[in-house]
Write a protein that binds this DNA or RNA. Structure first.
Lengths: 114, 114
DNA sequence: TTAGTATATAATGATTTGCTTATATGTGCA
DNA sequence: TGCACATATAAGCAAATCATTATATACTAA
């Protein structure tokens, strides 16, 4: 893949968005799993609008994409984003967060649509 | 070097600090050059207190260190920081900012103490 | 000692951020 | 159709952020 030249301005904007514990953990999870809003609500123990707003910020600059599946809207990382390689190298350094999803599976609240 | 496990909380804090164009550019420059406050004032065309406050934030979490040389205080990246490898991999992806220092050299305002 | 330069800190204010509550929209199903 | 669930959006508010101006501190050189 052709790597675009990183611009400082855009890099700073992305780092700012990643510089929030909730969004950073979201991105780490979404990098390998599609998740829906209600799962994040449970994982982060915060309100649904708060989660929606974080996702909106990530979506506004194209870092994540959404796909409706029936009742749910599944979010996932947009791997075609111009800066995805930049982001990926950051996410790869972070500890795996999959246990958060495993907890949902144990509780039976993981949404595995279709 | 022994790589410490990255904690999400600390990673988010660091990314938040890097998520500002001024601080990000500072870190990129400081990664390879020691610079003093007055140089940054000229480079970023902002007030001296503004620069000092950015540097203070970086210093407060140990990302940069300072060394007084006579009249000036030179800042540089603290390469012994627990998370320096994490930071370095981010900075390495950013475009070189050295032309900003070259401009100072041409204008004769680069401080090359000692 | 005094003036000039470099830097830090304090105080203030405008803007941004991230939450909350309330409400609207969209989907599935009885 | 009507209700339940999932999600988005709007509005309001407290806290954080980032600049500014004013002032204090530290060093150099005359």
């Amino acid at each position: 893949m052709l790597q675009t030249a990183i611009e400082m301005e855009k890099a700073a904007l992305i780092l700012k968005l990643l510089g929030d514990k909730t969004r950073l953990t979201m991105m780490k999870l979404l990098d390998h799993h599609a998740c829906c809003v209600c799962e994040f609500v449970e994982i982060f123990k915060t309100s649904q609008p708060s989660i929606s707003q974080h996702l909106r910020k990530l979506r506004d600059i194209g870092l994540v994409k959404e796909e409706r599946k029936g009742q749910w809207i599944f979010y996932s990382v947009n791997k075609h984003h111009e800066y995805y390689p930049f982001i990926e190298r950051i996410l790869n350094q972070l500890p795996d967060q999959d246990e958060k999803l495993k907890e949902l599976e144990i509780k039976g609240t993981r949404i595995t649509c279709c």
